[in-house]
């Protein structure tokens, strides 16, 4: 191939149509409150984990909904399940269950169960 000293850049969009949203669907079916998050950031502000390392439950939820699963797969085990997020969520999202279900969904997707 010819080296021109520059390249064709890849698009950086969230490829919404192609992305796999099955993990999000798996969670939403079992924990409908997953759908009503308004991305307020209360959970992530108060989260013990997010204080020191990159972990925002708000961010992970929106990423799942957009099918950007890989980042979530990497980060979801960082939660300590302390429950502080449940205490503050203004929408009453059952955050701990969302996390547990996300973990379960990733586990099952490895085992080709979903």
């Amino acid at each position: 191939m010819g080296d021109f000293g520059f390249t064709v850049l890849k698009e950086r969009h969230i490829n919404y149509d192609a992305n796999d949203k099955s993990i999000a669907e798996y969670i939403a079916e079992r924990e409908p409150s997953f759908r009503i998050c308004i991305e307020c950031g209360c959970c992530s502000a108060t989260c013990t984990t997010g204080n020191f390392i990159r972990f925002s439950l708000r961010e992970l939820q929106i990423l799942l909904k957009r099918g950007e699963n890989e980042i979530v797969r990497e980060q979801i085990d960082r939660c300590m399940l302390c429950g502080k997020c449940i205490l503050v969520c203004p929408r009453g999202v059952n955050t701990r269950n969302v996390i547990l279900l996300a973990r379960e969904a990733f586990r099952k997707s490895v085992e080709n169960e979903i």
Binding site: T48, T49, N51, F52, I53, D77, M80, L81, C82, K84
Partner: peptide, 27 residues
């Protein structure tokens, strides 16, 4: 006052993660 003591089970049980537990206590 409301912050976690830093225990966090898996964070403590896996040695490589302990810094994370420790940092919360330090905070």
């Amino acid at each position: 006052r409301r912050h976690c003591c830093g225990f966090g089970f898996r964070q403590y049980l896996v040695q490589a993660n302990r810094g994370y537990s420790l940092s919360n206590t330090a905070k």
